[in-house]
Simulated assay, not measured.
Amino acid sequence: MGVGVVDPILPEISSALNASPGQTELLFSTYLFVSAALMFFASWVATRIGRKKTLLIGLAIIVTFATACALSGHVNLIIGFRGGWGVGNALFVSTALATVLGASADPRRAIMLYEGALGAGMALGPLVGGAVGSLSWRGPFLATAVLMAIGLIAIAFFVPATPIDTSRRRSAAEPFKAVVDSRLSILMAAALFYNYGYFTLLAYAPFPVAEASVRAGRQFTPLDLGLVFFGWGLMVALGSVWLGPRCCEHVGIRRTVTATLVLFTIDEIILATWISPIPQVIGVIIGGLFIGIINTAMTEIVMSASDIQREVASSAYSGIRFLGGACAPTLAGILRSVWGIGGPYYVGAVTLVVTIALMWVDRRHRMRRCAHSVALQ
């Protein structure tokens, strides 16, 4: 919920603090770049102090910096505090995935529930953000602090302490080695490009939606945007928990990913070319369904592609995901000024096409390795 709670107030912050859309997008990119950089070291921390302590420290940091954002009065201060927020996010997100996988005997179901929970949180976050953001742009930041405090208390009481196995400690370099591991490198590159396209929709969409409403002679409020992203998040959850697993079961996981990436590419092209309220709202919401399906399937593919320790694989994959996501809002302002309001979406569509190509290359490499291992036997 803490990720999406800020989405509906991006145009509001831009107006209230006299910030350009590019500056406002830095609220996302600073947070995501810091998260991405430190996620690579989350496994090093978790294997030394334990998963539970890592989760608690991460949430405590988020509570502190979300509160600082709410009390700030200048966009540059908020951008800086969002960087601190990203430190807590890095410790929490990658460790949470490893913790959920470690607590379940069925990795596929664990990943499905993990991505479904993310989708549900992203559905409720913008709704809360839109409601309190209608009162003040500071409200969503305070709401995030409260939500993260609830999460902290829940983990403190309900998540069992995790024993520290000194024999399983890993060096800080392990996640970087995982990124270039021959079994994972192409998939990591695919995740990087896919998350650029994904976060283009998540971080940039409020601005085209607001622009489309202005062109139609009305004004989208933070609550209106919250409702749009509530629908988007519901679709993410639906795709993660229900439609995605069924498609993977009946069609195959890689075919599901490829077909959904094609549909997502078409969706971003439509969003780039058709700047009017109904296509924008429908395009954003239906995009959530595609994202939910792809997120669950790609996470499963990456996490099962090698026998690398879960903390290490989770740190590497989470870091790459957030790095790709950080690039999207960082470049959105520049692309919009050069190619117009649809520019960021066109580039997002191109990155999705690159993702499709990389998934195909990875499949060919895996088929070749399997054939080689059979020949050796």
Score class of each variant (00 low, 15 high):
P222H: 00
L263E: 05
I278N: 05
I150T: 02
G133M: 12
L238N: 00
I150A: 05
A103S: 11
A210V: 05
A161I: 14
R336T: 06
F81W: 14
R255Q: 09
V361C: 02
L289T: 10
I62H: 13
A332W: 12
L238G: 00
R218F: 15
G73S: 15
E115S: 12
G130D: 00
A349D: 05
T330N: 12
F199I: 07
A37R: 05
W339H: 08
V214Q: 09
A237D: 00
R310Q: 10
F193L: 09
L201S: 02
T299D: 03
G116F: 00
I308K: 00
A156N: 11
Y198V: 03
Q219M: 13
M148I: 11
I320H: 01
S171V: 02
G58P: 11
R363S: 08
S171T: 03
I150D: 01
I334K: 15
G333H: 09
L358T: 05
Y204K: 13
V236N: 01
H250I: 12
A349I: 15
G319T: 14
G324P: 02
V75A: 13
V34R: 08
S337V: 07
Q377R: 14
V350M: 14
R321V: 02
A105C: 11
F229P: 07
R51V: 04
V159Q: 07
I57M: 07
G88H: 13
S94T: 10
Y346I: 13
S29H: 11
R368G: 04
A316Y: 00
M39D: 04
V5K: 06
S171L: 03
L97F: 08
Y204S: 10
G342H: 05
D165S: 14
G88D: 06
Y345W: 14
L101K: 00
A305G: 03
L32D: 07
V347P: 04
V179A: 02
G252D: 10
I269K: 13
G88I: 12
M298A: 07
V361P: 02
I186P: 02
L187M: 01
F33Q: 07
L234Q: 09
I291N: 02
G121E: 04
T47M: 03
V353N: 09
G231I: 11
L152G: 06
P8H: 10
T351M: 15
L223Q: 12
L71H: 05
T64G: 03
I308T: 13
L234W: 06
T355F: 09
G239K: 11
V353R: 11
V354M: 10
F229A: 06
I49T: 11
S314C: 11
G116E: 00
D165M: 12
I61E: 03
P245N: 06
H250Q: 08
F157E: 01
A161K: 15
G86M: 13
P126R: 05
I150M: 04
G22Q: 11
A98G: 10
G324F: 03
A66P: 06
L352G: 01
N295C: 12
A68L: 15
A305H: 09
A60I: 12
M188S: 14
L124G: 01
Y345V: 05
N89G: 06
G324W: 00
V257S: 00
A154V: 15
A90W: 14
G130N: 04
S20W: 08
I9V: 15
L152Y: 06
I266C: 08
F207I: 07
A46D: 12
A37P: 01
Q280Y: 05
